[in-house]
């Protein structure tokens, strides 16, 4: 069976009821991450969160946006692009994935190295924890140290502590010039070439290696990009490429890594956190390993 709450009130009652009878829930927004990472216990009932979708608040002048967690990356990109802005979240995977899953899995993307990981880009969120309580930590402003940081705690918790329903994000203005290049460097030299570009005076906005080539995005004002082009040519034969290459390379990348074994003291803290927010172990049980 699938639960599909259409409001926050419905969601809290679904979770509260599940907690009362220890009925496991598997959180799904767009369903694009289902095969990623560790498996949730097979008996878990699906909790569809796709109703929590759409733009909640967007004031372009603030360079921040608040969206429903099930809003797709594609919609986030389209809405912000209309104001010549963007969110550097752009995670590995397809643009059909949701903002909420990106935050919940803390999935980075090609811009993370230059512009920040999900934990650096999320400003606040709304979520329903495993006891059915609504939590609204953080806020929508770009600097905020009020209270203990439940925002960072929920980011990367894989929905095992709470179901995220809303997310506030940091945006950036689009650069004046933004070019994608492919640089032939050869597989043997790819790491060194990428390192050299990132440490150059004009570091790229993104730089990924595939099959002996670097896909590089250089952005800034015209003079900066001109200097960055020169730096590209210093590491290999460079050719302009279509920006659409980024969506292709993202969709083709599976980002999930096996988790390293954890020290006992850390494992105990993690277990304490799980117990504090999901004492009945109903939210994505087993997903954190």
């Amino acid at each position: 069976m699938t639960q599909r709450p259409s409001s926050l009130a419905e969601l809290t009652s679904v979770v509260s009821e599940a907690a009362a009878c220890a009925g496991a829930l598997r959180l799904v927004a767009r369903g694009t991450w289902l095969t990623g990472g560790a498996r949730v216990e097979a008996t878990a009932e699906l909790l569809q969160l796709d109703a929590f979708s759409g733009i909640v608040e967007y004031e372009p002048g603030d360079l921040t946006i608040t969206v429903g967690a099930a809003t797709t990356i594609a919609e986030l990109d389209a809405v912000t692009a209309a104001h010549n802005q963007w969110c550097p979240l752009s995670p590995w995977g397809t643009d059909d994935g949701s903002v909420g899953a990106t935050i919940a899995t803390a999935t980075p993307g090609p811009y993370a190295h230059a512009l920040g990981l999900p934990r650096d880009l999320v400003l606040g969120l709304e979520c329903v924890d495993g006891t059915g309580k609504v939590l609204r930590p953080g806020g929508k402003v770009v600097k905020n140290v009020a209270g203990f940081d439940l925002v960072r705690l929920m980011t990367g918790a894989w929905g095992s502590l709470a179901a995220i329903t809303r997310v506030s994000l940091r945006l950036r203005a689009r650069p004046a010039v933004d070019e994608t290049w492919v640089v032939e460097v050869g597989a043997a030299h790819a790491d060194a070439a990428r390192h050299a570009l990132r440490r150059s005076a004009t570091p790229p906005m993104a730089c990924e290696e595939f099959a002996g080539q670097l896909l590089v995005r250089i952005a800034g004002n015209a003079a900066y990009v001109q200097a960055a082009r020169t730096a590209l040519r210093a590491v290999g034969d460079a050719e302009r490429a279509d920006d659409a290459r980024w969506a292709q390379i993202r969709a083709a990348t599976r980002p999930f890594r096996a988790r390293a074994p954890m020290a006992e003291a850390v494992r105990l803290l993690d277990a304490g956190v799980k117990h504090a927010f999901d004492p009945a172990n109903i939210l994505n049980p087993g997903i954190m390993g």
Partner: peptide
């Protein structure tokens, strides 16, 4: 470390 972001917390 792959667990919860306890450092962030």
């Amino acid at each position: 470390d792959g667990g919860y972001d306890l450092l962030g917390a």
